[in-house]
Design a protein around this nucleic acid. Structure first.
Lengths: 142, 142
DNA sequence: CTGGTTGCAAACTTTTTGCAGCGTC
DNA sequence: GACGCTGCAAAAAGTTTGCAACCAG
């Protein structure tokens, strides 16, 4: 099932509506190669439709988070970013505190970590992936 | 060496000054049993000295972060919290997305995780600890 | 039609900055 | 005494809300 159909079903189930704005935001999320801020997503939406407001983007992102279509997180730099969860395999993020870029790690690779936390602390880690902060290879050299 | 002496040395090394306000913030950080927001720290400082400004608290927390005395992070709820790193053993945080509380995990327990990320991705995780989000045992039952 | 959704504008929260006076070293 | 630091106030940045018009079902 395509992501658009998934959204339509989600919405119908809740008695909500599939609007042009929601389709636009979803489409922009698909294009992103990296997590983006609300402003960045808004800017991309704006290139396609001039009269969309940023408050609508915020409301849509919040809705998508409830629907588990999107994950919002802060890499520790105080800047909140959003990422599409639909198609791509879920993954963890390694965010560099120096340059701000982020690497992706498939969930499966850290399965032993999540299993350990579940066993020892009865703590279920986020199914959408975790955000780990540190310093990337490039910045370590510099 | 006490934490206050450590701070004094840090400051001296940089040509900075040990002010009453900085001592106050450090002292409040010591009292905290859990990570706190800038506002919360400000409120505690305020009970002891009426004429301290919140901008000073922000400036002090930023300084302390540079000095690695404090770690600031966002558990994914969009709220930035600060925690003292000085005396206690460094640890990771498990933050519950449902109730907001956080568990601590000693760094040593997740040493294999950090080693794996270093080897495979040449990514050095934050020495002050990571923040992992998920759902705690109590909230899973509910 | 009906009620969820939107754009607009304004409010709000959190954090940052400019500056003159103060206090540490 | 020099210069870093502070309080105050104001600005900036990010996010939320109220409301009348709008439009998907």
């Amino acid at each position: 099932m395509s992501c658009e159909k998934l959204l339509r079903d989600y919405l119908r189930k809740r008695g909500l509506r599939l609007t042009h704005q929601r389709e636009l935001v979803l489409s922009v999320l698909h294009e992103l190669e990296a997590p983006a801020t609300a402003e960045e997503i808004f800017a991309r939406v704006r290139t396609r439709s001039q009269n969309v407001d940023i408050s609508t983007v915020y409301r849509t992102l919040e809705l998508f988070q409830e629907l588990r279509l999107v994950s919002g997180f802060d890499a520790g730099d105080g800047i909140r970013r959003y990422e599409h969860l639909g198609v791509a395999a879920p993954h963890h993020h390694l965010v560099c505190q120096t340059c701000g870029k982020s690497l992706s790690v498939p969930l499966a690779e850290l399965a032993s970590l999540t299993a350990y936390l579940a066993e020892t602390y009865h703590f279920t880690t986020d199914p959408g992936g975790l955000t780990l902060s540190g310093v990337c290879a490039t910045c370590q050299k510099a």
